[in-house]
């Protein structure tokens, strides 16, 4: 490093580039819909940062209302003492063949600070569109799931109400 000091011109260029990154990060703080510096490339910041169910649905599935289908099964407890870890199981009764399969599954909690909780993308190699995860719920609320087939057909679960004793989002 000392034997080969950074030429002055390169030093200035490096400083300017660094400044641009800081400015971009600053813009991220002001614009809630833009990706933050550390975001994983491809992570959909916009629908995840939407504050209402209708905007989160619009930015993820492109509709604010999707008809329920018995094919989309959502299992969650009726009462959750701890809103910080509510177990949910989602299972879509749909064949996973090369020409028609469940491509994406979205899970929402209607009144969470950010309603979109997760997005799963499956392939025929998944065998079944199925997952289990644990989620945070701010208060007693409804969970709902929307699945999209590879041909673009949308189907929803019946919304499931979970009574929450202690909320899990802090504040």
């Amino acid at each position: 490093m000392f034997s080969n000091p950074l030429p002055r011109r390169d030093f200035i260029r490096a400083t300017l580039t660094g400044g641009a990154v800081v400015a971009a990060a600053g813009a991220g703080l002001l614009r809630s819909d833009s990706a933050m510096a550390g975001d994983v490339p491809g992570w959909p910041a916009k629908p995840f940062e939407d504050k209402t169910l209708s905007s989160a649905m619009m930015d993820s599935v492109g509709k604010t209302s999707v008809a329920p289908s018995p094919k989309v099964k959502l299992t969650a407890p009726t009462i959750a003492e701890n809103g910080g870890a509510v177990p949910v199981t989602v299972e879509i009764d749909f064949p996973m063949t090369a020409d028609d399969y469940i491509d994406a599954v979205y899970l929402f909690v209607d009144h969470n600070p950010s309603p979109l909780v997760s997005k799963y993308q499956f392939t025929p190699e998944s065998g079944q569109a199925y997952f289990q995860e644990r989620i945070k719920m701010a208060k007693t609320d409804h969970i709902r799931v929307i699945a999209k087939s590879s041909k673009g057909v949308l189907m929803a679960s019946t919304p499931k109400e979970v009574k929450v004793t202690i909320g899990g989002c802090g504040g």
């Binding site: 997760s118 799963y120 993308q121 989002c169």
Partner: peptide, 26 residues
């Protein structure tokens, strides 16, 4: 599986601490 991507998940801040995840594979 053997280098072929078959599932991609995007998570929000609403996934619980120490995330548990189950899924299926053919």
């Amino acid at each position: 599986f053997d280098g072929k991507l078959f599932m991609t998940i995007d998570w929000s801040i609403a996934i619980s601490t120490n995330p548990y995840l189950a899924y299926k594979m053919r």
